[in-house]
Amino acid sequence: MTALPVPEVPHLREAEAFWSGIAAGEFLLERCRGCGAVVWYPRGFCPSCGSSDVTLEPASGEGTVYSFSVVHRGAGEYRGCEPYVVAYVELDEGPRILTNVVGGDPDSLVIGARVRMVFERGPDGSALYRFTTV
Protein backbone atom coordinates (compact mmCIF):
# COMPACT_ATOMS: atom_id res chain seq x y z
CA MET A 1 0.00 0.00 0.00
CA THR A 2 1.32 3.40 -1.00
CA ALA A 3 1.84 5.89 1.83
CA LEU A 4 -1.05 8.33 1.96
CA PRO A 5 -0.54 12.06 1.49
CA VAL A 6 -0.52 14.34 4.53
CA PRO A 7 -2.31 17.44 3.22
CA GLU A 8 -2.25 20.82 4.87
CA VAL A 9 -5.39 21.22 6.97
CA PRO A 10 -7.05 24.63 6.92
CA HIS A 11 -8.96 25.15 10.16
CA LEU A 12 -10.95 27.73 12.07
CA ARG A 13 -9.02 29.79 14.62
CA GLU A 14 -10.94 28.24 17.51
CA ALA A 15 -9.35 24.86 16.63
CA GLU A 16 -5.75 26.15 16.71
CA ALA A 17 -4.89 24.37 19.98
CA PHE A 18 -6.24 21.06 18.66
CA TRP A 19 -4.12 21.23 15.51
CA SER A 20 -1.05 22.36 17.45
CA GLY A 21 -1.55 19.20 19.48
CA ILE A 22 -1.65 17.08 16.33
CA ALA A 23 1.60 18.71 15.13
CA ALA A 24 3.13 17.80 18.50
CA GLY A 25 1.88 14.20 18.33
CA GLU A 26 -0.95 14.62 20.84
CA PHE A 27 -4.69 14.12 20.17
CA LEU A 28 -6.69 16.42 22.42
CA LEU A 29 -10.44 15.98 22.83
CA GLU A 30 -12.64 18.90 23.77
CA ARG A 31 -14.71 18.26 26.90
CA CYS A 32 -17.38 20.53 28.35
CA ARG A 33 -16.86 21.42 32.00
CA GLY A 34 -20.52 22.37 32.21
CA CYS A 35 -22.27 19.18 31.13
CA GLY A 36 -19.36 16.77 30.67
CA ALA A 37 -20.03 16.16 26.96
CA VAL A 38 -17.14 15.22 24.73
CA VAL A 39 -17.38 17.66 21.82
CA TRP A 40 -16.31 16.45 18.39
CA TYR A 41 -15.13 18.31 16.35
CA PRO A 42 -13.49 20.97 18.56
CA ARG A 43 -15.07 24.43 18.33
CA GLY A 44 -14.39 26.27 21.59
CA PHE A 45 -17.89 25.91 23.01
CA CYS A 46 -20.33 23.12 23.83
CA PRO A 47 -23.22 22.73 21.36
CA SER A 48 -24.83 20.33 23.84
CA CYS A 49 -25.40 22.81 26.70
CA GLY A 50 -24.12 26.07 25.24
CA SER A 51 -21.29 26.55 27.72
CA SER A 52 -18.03 28.18 26.61
CA ASP A 53 -16.23 26.48 29.48
CA VAL A 54 -14.56 23.73 27.50
CA THR A 55 -11.16 22.16 28.00
CA LEU A 56 -8.85 20.04 25.88
CA GLU A 57 -7.86 16.68 27.36
CA PRO A 58 -5.48 14.07 25.96
CA ALA A 59 -7.39 11.13 24.48
CA SER A 60 -6.43 7.48 24.80
CA GLY A 61 -5.86 7.13 21.06
CA GLU A 62 -7.63 3.78 21.19
CA GLY A 63 -10.84 2.86 19.43
CA THR A 64 -12.81 0.43 17.27
CA VAL A 65 -13.75 0.54 13.61
CA TYR A 66 -17.41 1.65 13.40
CA SER A 67 -17.57 1.54 9.60
CA PHE A 68 -15.12 1.68 6.73
CA SER A 69 -14.83 1.87 2.96
CA VAL A 70 -11.99 0.72 0.74
CA VAL A 71 -11.54 3.50 -1.80
CA HIS A 72 -10.66 2.26 -5.27
CA ARG A 73 -11.04 5.62 -7.01
CA GLY A 74 -9.22 8.28 -5.06
CA ALA A 75 -9.69 11.98 -5.64
CA GLY A 76 -7.15 14.81 -5.78
CA GLU A 77 -3.83 14.09 -4.11
CA TYR A 78 -5.04 10.60 -3.09
CA ARG A 79 -5.18 9.48 -6.72
CA GLY A 80 -2.67 6.69 -7.22
CA CYS A 81 -2.79 5.58 -3.58
CA GLU A 82 -5.70 3.13 -4.07
CA PRO A 83 -6.77 0.93 -2.50
CA TYR A 84 -6.88 2.73 0.86
CA VAL A 85 -9.26 2.80 3.79
CA VAL A 86 -11.50 5.66 4.94
CA ALA A 87 -13.17 4.76 8.24
CA TYR A 88 -15.26 5.96 11.12
CA VAL A 89 -13.37 5.03 14.26
CA GLU A 90 -15.32 5.10 17.51
CA LEU A 91 -12.89 6.46 20.07
CA ASP A 92 -12.97 4.82 23.48
CA GLU A 93 -14.09 8.26 24.74
CA GLY A 94 -17.21 8.01 22.54
CA PRO A 95 -17.03 10.15 19.40
CA ARG A 96 -17.06 8.50 15.99
CA ILE A 97 -14.49 10.30 13.86
CA LEU A 98 -13.53 10.11 10.20
CA THR A 99 -9.98 8.99 9.51
CA ASN A 100 -7.83 6.52 7.58
CA VAL A 101 -6.85 3.06 8.76
CA VAL A 102 -3.34 2.44 7.41
CA GLY A 103 -0.65 -0.20 7.41
CA GLY A 104 -2.69 -3.36 6.92
CA ASP A 105 -4.46 -5.25 4.15
CA PRO A 106 -7.62 -3.25 3.37
CA ASP A 107 -9.49 -6.39 2.39
CA SER A 108 -8.98 -8.00 5.80
CA LEU A 109 -10.39 -5.07 7.80
CA VAL A 110 -13.67 -5.68 9.66
CA ILE A 111 -16.11 -3.52 11.61
CA GLY A 112 -15.28 -3.87 15.29
CA ALA A 113 -11.53 -4.18 14.76
CA ARG A 114 -9.48 -2.54 17.51
CA VAL A 115 -7.29 0.31 16.28
CA ARG A 116 -4.67 2.67 17.72
CA MET A 117 -3.86 6.22 16.67
CA VAL A 118 -0.66 7.04 14.82
CA PHE A 119 0.59 10.46 13.72
CA GLU A 120 1.85 11.03 10.21
CA ARG A 121 3.79 14.05 9.02
CA GLY A 122 4.25 15.62 5.62
CA PRO A 123 7.53 17.06 4.34
CA ASP A 124 6.22 20.60 4.84
CA GLY A 125 5.36 20.19 8.52
CA SER A 126 1.71 19.22 8.06
CA ALA A 127 0.43 16.47 10.38
CA LEU A 128 -2.58 14.13 10.57
CA TYR A 129 -3.96 11.52 12.96
CA ARG A 130 -4.57 8.09 11.46
CA PHE A 131 -5.08 4.60 12.88
CA THR A 132 -3.54 1.14 12.55
CA THR A 133 -5.09 -2.14 13.57
CA VAL A 134 -3.86 -3.51 16.89
Binding site: L4, V9, P10, A15, Y41, S69, C81, V86, I97, L128
Partner: peptide
Protein backbone atom coordinates in the same frame (compact mmCIF):
# COMPACT_ATOMS: atom_id res chain seq x y z
CA UNK B 1 -16.17 24.35 10.09
CA UNK B 2 -16.23 20.55 9.74
CA UNK B 3 -14.07 20.42 6.62
CA UNK B 4 -10.81 20.14 8.54
CA UNK B 5 -11.98 16.80 9.94
CA UNK B 6 -13.60 15.36 6.81
CA UNK B 7 -12.01 16.71 3.63
CA UNK B 8 -8.51 15.38 4.28
CA UNK B 9 -8.98 11.59 4.23
CA UNK B 10 -9.32 10.96 0.52
CA UNK B 11 -13.09 10.47 0.34
CA UNK B 12 -14.06 9.58 -3.22
CA UNK B 13 -16.36 12.57 -3.72
CA UNK B 14 -19.76 11.99 -2.16
CA UNK B 15 -19.50 8.22 -2.68
CA UNK B 16 -17.42 7.33 0.36
CA UNK B 17 -19.82 8.85 2.88
CA UNK B 18 -22.67 6.76 1.47
CA UNK B 19 -20.35 3.76 1.33
CA UNK B 20 -19.69 4.10 5.06
Amino acid sequence: PEGSYEDVWGMSGAVTGYAL
